[in-house]
């Protein structure tokens, strides 16, 4: 096509030209921009990953899309806003406490929602559960909208600074925070799922709920725990997201939530490392599109990607391909 080198200097998807052309200053600039975009993309993707984990875990144990998950993300951001009043701003201790408390609140909220709205419907049609989930999602959004007519601005929780890496790539402390926090949470999650009793039970329920209950696993407790865990991660995601885009409002979860779900499917739903991978990938791709001349189509990227993946590899990147038994 025309205009790979057009004057606007936006990054085209033609990485070969970017990477393998000679080292003139203009090209160097492109290389820098390329890596800058990667970093920005990864930090957005890390947040998608945190939300995607909740979708994936709940899907794993219940085989259902928890539509209200994206609103738990929103509640996470708002409780962060609320708790920030009680702690010094721009301090590591304060920041961590706020994140921790919000995670706690959302974990309870997630468990409450599961108990009240989903558990009574266990065993009824998927469609009903999905609509209930949508009802819960609308309920959360509209109840927040009753009191909030305009967006709130999110406080600066952590000290901020920025680092310039060799080549002129800029790394903000918020990005570092996002990476570190996501990594720690992922490690913790992987530990819980692989090495604790509860995690083993989770895997058992996800593999075969009937068999799990026959060997004495309390499915209700496991499902409740899964909701708590997923919701806590969404809360962390909500706060990290708000640090980057510090204007919070009741509908803020909708789009990131949908995209995170796409990320979960992309990685292979029910698959924890898959969700993380899918999130990162989606974040990077979106950031690149956003920096290109097709930026107005950014919101469509996630879905286009989703459709392509589902058509060619319905079980996702890391999911196992299964044949329905007849």
């Amino acid at each position: 096509m025309d205009g790979i080198y057009d004057s606007q200097g936006g990054i085209r998807s033609n990485f070969h030209i970017i990477l393998f052309s000679s080292n003139s200053p203009a090209n160097l600039c492109r290389v820098t921009e390329f890596f800058q975009q990667i970093i920005n993309g990864l930090s957005l993707g890390a947040i998608y990953a945190l939300i995607a984990l909740g979708y994936t875990m709940v899907y794993g144990v219940l085989r259902f899309i928890n539509f209200a998950h994206s609103d738990i993300f929103m509640v996470g951001a708002f409780s962060g806003y609320f708790f920030s009043r009680f702690f010094p701003s721009e301090s590591i201790f304060g920041g961590i406490s706020v994140v921790f408390l919000s995670m706690l609140v959302c974990a309870f909220l997630g468990m409450l929602i599961e108990r009240v709205a989903y558990r009574p419907l266990r065993g009824s049609s998927k469609l009903n559960v999905l609509i209930t989930a949508i009802g819960v999602s609308m309920f959360l959004e509209y109840s927040f909208q009753v009191k909030l007519t305009k967006p709130l601005s999110f406080p600066v929780l952590f000290p901020t600074m920025s680092f310039t890496l060799p080549g002129g790539i800029i790394l903000s402390s918020t990005q570092v925070l996002v990476f570190v926090m996501t990594l720690l949470l992922l490690i913790a999650l992987q530990y819980i799922v692989l090495y604790t009793k509860m995690g083993t039970a989770m895997r058992a329920v996800s593999f075969n709920p009937m068999a799990a209950s026959l060997v004495g696993i309390n499915n209700d407790a496991v499902i409740s725990f899964t909701f708590g865990l997923g919701s806590a991660l969404a809360a962390a995601g909500g706060i990290l997201y708000s640090l980057n885009y510090p204007s919070i409002e009741p509908l803020m979860g909708v789009l990131p939530g949908l995209k995170a779900f796409v990320a979960a499917v992309l990685g292979g739903i029910g698959n924890i490392p898959g969700a993380a991978l899918g999130g990162l990938l989606l974040g990077v791709i979106e950031t690149f599109v956003n920096g290109s001349r097709y930026s107005t189509y950014t919101d469509a990227i996630a879905f286009t990607l989703l459709i392509i993946i589902l058509i060619f590899r319905p079980s996702g990147l890391l999911g196992k391909v299964t044949v329905e038994k007849v």
């Binding site: 259902f64 949908l258 796409v262 499917v265 107005t296």
Partner: peptide, 21 residues
Amino acid sequence: RLKGDYLAIVTLGFGEIIRVI
């Protein structure tokens, strides 16, 4: 090729893509 939740989310995605267009 798709069923249930997957189909739901893909049709939802199509709806959103149409809007973006």
